[in-house]
C-alpha cells in the first residue's frame, strides 16, 4: 500500500491543478477554441457584406445569445461558474422556457 501511496503522491499533494498547471495543460486548446469563435464571427461578417439582405446577425436570437456568452467570458467572475452561466444563457433559446417557469 505504501507504493500505492507514492503513486498517488501528486494527487494527495494537489488534488486540484494549480493555475500554472491549468495554463500549461489548456492554453493551446483554449487558444484554438477562441480562434474558432473569432473565425466564425468573421465568416458571418463577410456573409453580411456579401448578402446585405440577410440581417440574421442582428435579428436571429442565436446571434444575441452568442454575444451574451462572449460578454460573460470577457468579464470577471466572483465564482467559477462561467460554464453554468453560459448554459443558462443558451437555455433562453427556447421561448417556451420564458412561458413555462415553474
Amino acid at each position: 500500500m505504501e507504493t500505492l501511496f507514492k503513486l498517488n503522491n501528486r494527487k494527495m499533494a494537489t488534488p486540484i491543478l494549480t493555475p500554472s498547471q491549468v495554463l500549461g495543460n489548456y492554453y493551446l486548446d483554449t487558444r484554438w477554441h477562441l480562434l474558432e469563435t473569432a473565425a466564425m464571427l468573421d465568416r458571418a461578417q463577410r456573409g453580411e457584406a456579401a448578402h446585405p439582405e440577410d440581417e440574421s446577425m442582428k435579428t436571429d436570437p442565436r446571434a444575441q445569445l452568442l454575444r451574451e456568452a462572449l460578454d460573460v467570458l470577457a468579464s470577471d467572475s466572483a465564482e467559477p461558474n462561467r460554464t453554468e452561466r453560459l448554459l443558462m444563457i443558451f437555455t433562453k433559446l427556447d421561448p417556451k422556457n420564458e412561458e413555462r417557469k415553474d
Binding site: L87, M88, F90, K92, L93, K96, D102
Partner: peptide
C-alpha cells in the same frame, strides 16, 4: 437536449 434540458430536468425531478 440543449435548451430544453433545464426545464425537462426540473420536470423530471417534480
Amino acid at each position: 437536449h440543449l435548451h430544453d434540458k433545464l426545464f425537462g430536468t426540473r420536470k423530471i425531478l417534480e
